[in-house]
């Protein structure tokens, strides 16, 4: 009995030091560990930017929307529509939580009231784009099984390739997501989304830019291979750690475009 427990203790010690060794040598991380790093990487305290969203259909026709967008860490986000004229003044607010579904609100000046967006709208489109809320990165870490598939260099950046398979019972459009994680910054720079038939359905691409001491996205695109529809999001005039107050990320501030 005693011998056995000491063997167990030894094994435990060994395994801990073994995994420590793995962590030090980055290359040996597991998929889950990589994705956890991605989830917890350092982001600006707050940021503000002007966002241009282009909705492009298979025949190349473009619909454009311009938004003013503020972020509070990774958790809160508010954006006001500046153009086109018929939706100007509409705004969107989101609070993200680790342990429960996100809260989202929409304000429509023509209807006057702030409305909540149903919490189960995860599969819903983000402002009519090819991004669903799910695609915008609001995946809960615990909802997936991860597997490190290999490595690849994308645009000169060394990346891990991690496959995420949703756990049973998770509401999602996808059977599988393959992510390219930039090793240096633990940033997702490319993702492939597979539909229920396990066919590649959408492709997401992200371009990072260095602002201050952070790496943030300056361009994101999502292409739906089935509908041949594409959304491009350009982040302009990005400012970080500007001293925004957290109280600004509240439904009260949705009705007036912040200056």
């Amino acid at each position: 009995m005693k011998t056995r427990s000491s063997i167990a203790a030894l094994m435990l010690i060994l395994s801990i030091s073994w995994s420590d060794a793995l962590l030090t040598a980055q290359e040996q991380m597991t998929g889950a560990q990589i994705m956890e790093k991605v989830d917890t990487r350092t982001v600006p305290v707050d940021s503000r930017m002007e966002t241009i969203m282009k909705l492009i259909d298979k025949r190349g026709s473009v619909r454009e929307r311009t938004l003013k967008s503020y972020r509070w860490g990774d958790d809160k986000q508010i954006m006001w529509f500046l153009a086109p004229a018929d939706v100007k003044g509409s705004s969107f607010l989101k609070h993200t939580y680790d342990d429960r579904d996100d809260d989202m609100w929409l304000y429509l000046p023509s209807f006057g009231k702030v409305r909540r967006i149903a919490s189960h709208a995860k599969k819903g489109s983000f402002m009519g784009s090819d991004f669903t809320y799910e695609d915008m990165g609001d995946r809960k870490l615990k909802d997936y099984e991860y597997k490190l598939m290999g490595e690849e260099k994308i645009d000169g950046k060394e990346c891990w390739i991690v496959e995420s398979i949703p756990n049973k019972g998770v509401v999602t459009d996808y059977s599988k997501i393959v992510s390219w994680v930039w090793k240096t910054e633990y940033m997702l720079i490319k993702e492939d989304f597979y539909d229920r038939r396990n066919q590649l359905k959408k492709k997401k691409v992200l371009e990072p830019v260095n602002v201050g001491k952070y790496w943030v996205a300056q361009f994101m695109s999502m292409e739906n291979l089935k509908s041949k529809h594409k959304t491009e999001i350009y982040m302009n005039n990005i400012e970080v750690d500007t001293g925004l107050e957290e109280k600004l990320f509240d439904t009260r501030y949705m009705k007036r475009i912040h200056r």
Binding site: P84, A85, D86, V87, S90, F92, M104, L106, L108, P109, S110, F111, R115, I117, A118, A121, K123, G124, S125, F126, M127, G128, S129, D130, T132, N224, H229
Partner: peptide, 17 residues
Amino acid sequence: NAGVAQSLLMYESSGEP
């Protein structure tokens, strides 16, 4: 026109693309 556009925006944020 704004009323129509905003109705659609509301739906777009709840439905699927």
